[in-house]
């Protein structure tokens, strides 16, 4: 997707799990690779908004944002998404962020460590 849009002149950015887990890989395909993202990070990207190739730029806040836009503020996005749901319409909400990755299956020591 990024290649397609970049070939048409767009500047692309990736956030989310893949950008956080494998930023080096994401940098090959996106101009910006975002870790923890807050208003300041978005502001920096929009202020620069330039192609970064062949290796994209990594930008991240030092921690998760303490607040996110609420449901009412996001309703213009939530409502059309719910309209597409055929039967069960579930409104997504979140009360806390930041899984600490301390379960043994998420930390390296108890898992397969030999390489």
């Amino acid at each position: 997707m990024s290649n397609l849009f970049r070939s048409r002149g767009a500047v692309t950015a990736l956030g989310g799990p893949h950008a956080r887990c494998y930023p080096e890989d994401a940098q090959k395909y996106f101009d910006y690779v975002l870790g923890f993202t807050n208003r300041s990070v978005i502001g920096d990207v929009l202020a620069d908004c330039a192609p970064h190739r062949p290796v994209g730029v990594r930008i991240a806040a030092s921690r998760q944002p303490e607040e996110l836009p609420g449901t009412e503020e996001r309703w213009k996005f939530i409502e059309p998404t719910l309209r597409k749901a055929p039967v069960i319409k579930i409104v997504p909400m979140i009360g806390s962020l930041g899984c600490p990755y301390t379960c043994s299956f998420a930390s390296i020591r108890p898992f397969r460590t030999s390489r």
Binding site: R20, Y101, A106, S107, I108, F111, T113, R115
Partner: peptide
Amino acid sequence: LLTAFGQAARSTWNISGSTVCCR
């Protein structure tokens, strides 16, 4: 199923050089 956590779980890494964090 399991997949790799990569750097997202870096704070819990105890072994350098390994990339086998899963979630």
